[in-house]
Simulated assay, not measured.
Amino acid sequence: MNHHLSTMNTPKIILASKSPRRQELLRLMDLDFEIVLKEVDESYPDGLTPEEIAVYIAEKKALAFDGDAYNQIVLTADTIVAIDNQILGKPNDAAHAIEMLQTLSGRVHRVVTGVCLTYQGKVNKFYDVSEVFFRPFKDQEIISYVEKYKPFDKAGSYGIQEWIGLVGIQRINGSYTNVVGLPTEKLHQQLLAIQN
């Protein structure tokens, strides 16, 4: 059996994400994919852990396909930033983004990405968790970052691959790509598993 996943032996993947970062990670994994977007209500029931929320929303995104792509692998994902017991989603505006980054400054937070793979009626759900350690930020650094990079499409109001990640992250426990938005090592293993 060939354990190398490439465009030759993998069914086409449908990526249900408009995130350029997820798209780039799949390209770097040498996978053949197309982007298909469906409108999904991203609300979730009360009382779920961050891990459960991320998987719940990823599965909700997959259910929107409702058998549309039976012979293709549908890949859906959701990334959540959590600190204490608070979920930091995508910010509403600049003031909200600044407030989130002030909360994260000088502390450790968790990034959880839930992933759902569906293929020929099989559903494979999993998640990964990374701990990110931020140094303390000056308010002016946060304000400048938000003004310049406008991180409004990112959970927790930051991109690890952007300026604030490069100058502010002291260390990470766990997968780097999970923080970007897709735990690629786990994804590779699960793609092998779902096809067998």
Rank of each mutant, 00 (worst) to 15 (best):
M1N: 14
N2H: 08
H3I: 11
H3E: 14
S17F: 00
S17Q: 04
K18E: 13
R22W: 01
Q23Y: 02
E24W: 11
E24G: 04
I35P: 11
E39K: 15
E51I: 15
I53G: 11
V55S: 13
E59A: 13
K60L: 12
L63I: 14
A64M: 13
F65S: 06
D66R: 12
D68N: 15
Q72G: 08
I73D: 07
T76F: 00
T76A: 01
T76M: 00
A77I: 07
D78W: 05
V81H: 00
A82E: 04
I83L: 08
Q86G: 02
P91D: 09
P91E: 12
N92L: 12
A94M: 06
G106M: 10
H109I: 07
H109A: 09
G114E: 05
V115M: 04
Y119R: 06
F137E: 12
K138F: 08
D139R: 14
V146L: 08
K148P: 04
P151T: 06
D153L: 06
A155L: 10
A155N: 09
G156N: 06
S157K: 11
Y158L: 05
G159C: 09
Q161A: 12
I164K: 10
L166T: 13
V167Y: 14
Y176E: 04
V180E: 09
T184I: 04
K186A: 02
H188M: 04
H188W: 10
N196W: 00
